Amino acid sequence: TVKFKYKGEEKQVDISKIKKVWRVGKMISFTYDEGGGKTGRGAVSEKDAPKELLQ
């Protein structure tokens, strides 16, 4: 599970739902399947990112 803040809201998403991951400076950005055909997005700092996300 990845915990992150998006627009001031605390969120979390299961690693299995993450589609795409990329690095922006010291942040790790990602998109994930929100269900219902929607794609969500989020970002975590490199130090807070789970190891599975960095692979």
Rank of each mutant, 00 (worst) to 15 (best):
A49G: 02
K20A: 10
G42L: 02
V2K: 01
L54T: 08
L53E: 01
A43V: 13
T1G: 05
A43I: 14
K11N: 04
K20P: 01
E52A: 12
G42K: 01
I15D: 01
M27S: 07
E34Q: 12
V44I: 15
G35R: 04
F30R: 00
K19A: 06
K26P: 09
E46F: 13
D14P: 14
S16P: 04
K11M: 10
K7W: 08
V21N: 01
Q55F: 12
Y6F: 12
K11W: 05
G25V: 02
I18P: 00
E46V: 14
V21C: 05
K11R: 14
K26S: 14
V24L: 06
M27P: 00
E34W: 06
G25F: 03
P50T: 05
S16I: 13
W22K: 05
T39E: 11
K20D: 09
K17D: 11
F4R: 01
E34A: 15
K7Y: 09
I28F: 04
T1S: 11
D48N: 13
V21Q: 02
E34Y: 07
D48R: 09
V2M: 08
T39F: 12
V44R: 02
A49P: 02
K20N: 10
G37V: 03
S16W: 10
S29W: 15
K11P: 01
S29Y: 15
I15K: 02
G40L: 10
G36C: 06
V13T: 06
K11F: 09
G25Y: 04
I15S: 03
A43D: 09
E46Y: 14
Q12W: 09
L53N: 01
K51S: 12
G8Y: 03
A49L: 04
I18F: 03
K5H: 12
T1N: 08
E10I: 10
Y32Q: 00
M27H: 06
V13E: 01
Y32V: 02
L54N: 03
A49E: 01
K38R: 13
Q55V: 13
E34N: 07
Y6D: 08
G36I: 07
G8I: 02
K19Y: 13
K47A: 13
K20L: 11
Y32D: 00
K47S: 13
S16A: 13
V21L: 06
F30G: 00
E46R: 09
K20S: 12
K11S: 03
I15M: 12
T39L: 15
K47H: 10
Q12P: 02
K20Q: 11
G42N: 02
V44T: 05
V44N: 00
W22T: 06
Y32S: 00
Q55W: 11
I15A: 04
K20I: 07
D48F: 11
G42D: 01
K5P: 05
A43P: 00
L54R: 08
R41N: 08
G42T: 02
V2W: 03
V2Q: 01
P50C: 05
V13G: 00
F30V: 01
G42P: 00
F4Q: 01
K11Y: 11
G40I: 05
D33N: 05
K51Y: 14
S16C: 07
P50Q: 03
V21I: 11
I18Y: 00
E52C: 04
K47D: 13
G42R: 01
G36K: 08
R41V: 11
T39K: 07
R41Y: 15
V2D: 00
V21D: 01
L54P: 02
G40N: 06
M27D: 05
Y6P: 02
Y32N: 00
V13I: 14
T1Q: 13
S16R: 11
I28A: 01
F30D: 00
S45V: 09
V24M: 09
V44W: 02
K19W: 10
E52G: 09
S29L: 13
K26V: 12
Y32R: 00
D33T: 05
Q55E: 14
G37F: 04
G36V: 07
F4Y: 06
S29P: 02
